[in-house]
Measured scan of single mutants.
Amino acid sequence: MGFKLLSKLLVYLTASIMAIASPLAFSVDSSGEYPTVSEIPVGEVRLYQIADGVWSHIATQSFDGAVYPSNGLIVRDGDELLLIDTAWGAKNTAALLAEIEKQIGLPVTRAVSTHFHDDRVGGVDVLRAAGVATYASPSTRRLAEVEGNEIPTHSLEGLSSSGDAVRFGPVELFYPGAAHSTDNLIVYVPSASVLYGGCAIYELSRTSAGNVADADLAEWPTSIERIQQHYPEAQFVIPGHGLPGGLDLLKHTTNVVKAHTNRSVVE
């Protein structure tokens, strides 16, 4: 069995187990497998329904001669939608809004960016022009300005110390501490036991640490421990890039980060 097929099978099995364990909360999309990078042309966006009122959005972007996937989250909030992270750029984010209108038909009224990198804030200006209120932590807003990236308009308070959590509509926002970046936030959907790890969490097929220019490698494993301790009931975990899975993604990420750190020390 090929690795790609095995990865998709694991996603399907995880979703099936969740649907059985929580039949009222989960209505997993039966329309197909989780979209992969090879299936999404740059400039297009796919939506994948995880649970009743919960979707991931998947886009792709060219970077350094390669094409990478990027995940975000959409959560229903009454007759409105909360968006977590842009679709990595203005063109993708405009396509995301169009796809949401086509498939869901509810307005996106608020959006949260989970850290300051372009795959999370690139497209904020498109959201703002569409009347979406954009939010991020003060740290993310400051770092985005320093980096020359787009800056969300509103500040999220109460997320300055490791372990801080605040309720934001249908989700809980959690600051686990520094990891992929010093400002990275985690998003949890309690009604569906869905954990969105953003770039602080890796997919299972990833074996290298990737972009760690703004990471705190020493603190990252401790931050992941905080996530595990705060959300032990999480059933569906979405990484910032690639295929979702279960809580095993947290341990896998820790292993990859520690291996990278150990290699760096040896070198």
Rank of each mutant, 00 (worst) to 15 (best):
P239K: 01
V75P: 01
D85N: 04
I20S: 07
Y175K: 02
E172W: 10
G2K: 10
A259K: 14
A136G: 12
D164S: 10
N211W: 13
S27L: 13
I238Q: 03
W55I: 03
K8L: 10
T114C: 00
L83M: 15
P190M: 05
M18H: 05
Y188V: 05
A259C: 10
W88S: 00
G148T: 13
V112F: 07
N92W: 01
V54C: 05
H154I: 07
K8C: 09
L81S: 04
L24V: 11
G242S: 03
E150P: 15
L159C: 02
E203W: 02
W55Y: 07
E39G: 09
A95L: 09
R110K: 07
A111H: 07
D248E: 08
I17Y: 06
G123P: 03
A59D: 07
S70H: 05
P244T: 05
K251C: 06
V75H: 04
H154K: 10
E99I: 10
S264D: 14
T182P: 09
P23K: 12
G65A: 11
R76H: 11
V237W: 02
T114S: 14
A66P: 13
S62P: 06
K102W: 15
S31C: 14
T86Q: 01
A192E: 07
S160Q: 14
T182R: 12
F3W: 05
E44L: 14
I17M: 06
A98H: 08
W220C: 03
P244L: 05
T93I: 02
A133M: 15
L9K: 06
T93V: 00
L127Q: 02
A133Y: 15
G2C: 05
E145H: 14
H252F: 04
G123F: 01
D248T: 14
T93D: 00
Y196D: 01
I58Q: 06
G158N: 14
T14K: 12
T134G: 02
A94T: 12
S223I: 05
P23T: 09
I104F: 04
E219D: 12
E225M: 11
C199L: 01
M18I: 05
Y188N: 04
V187F: 02
V28E: 07
Q103A: 07
L106Y: 05
C199E: 00
D85W: 00
R263A: 11
D77C: 05
A165G: 09
V266M: 06
T109D: 13
E101N: 13
I104V: 08
V108C: 03
A95T: 09
L143Q: 11
T140S: 11
I227A: 12
P190L: 05
P244W: 05
D77M: 12
G89N: 06
I50S: 03
A19Q: 14
A95G: 11
S223L: 03
E33I: 08
A59L: 04
I17N: 04
E219W: 08
R141D: 02
E233P: 04
R128M: 13
S208P: 08
A130E: 09
I20A: 13
W88F: 14
P35M: 08
L156D: 01
L143R: 13
G242V: 03
H260S: 10
A19I: 13
G169E: 04
V108P: 15
V256H: 02
H180F: 00
S205R: 09
A178H: 08
S160P: 13
T254V: 13
S139W: 09
Y135H: 14
S27Q: 12
R141V: 09
S7V: 08
V112E: 03
H154S: 13
S223V: 08
A213C: 14
T153Q: 15
D29I: 10
P221I: 15
I186V: 13
D64E: 06
D77L: 04
R76C: 04
G105Q: 15
K102V: 11
T254P: 04
R142F: 15
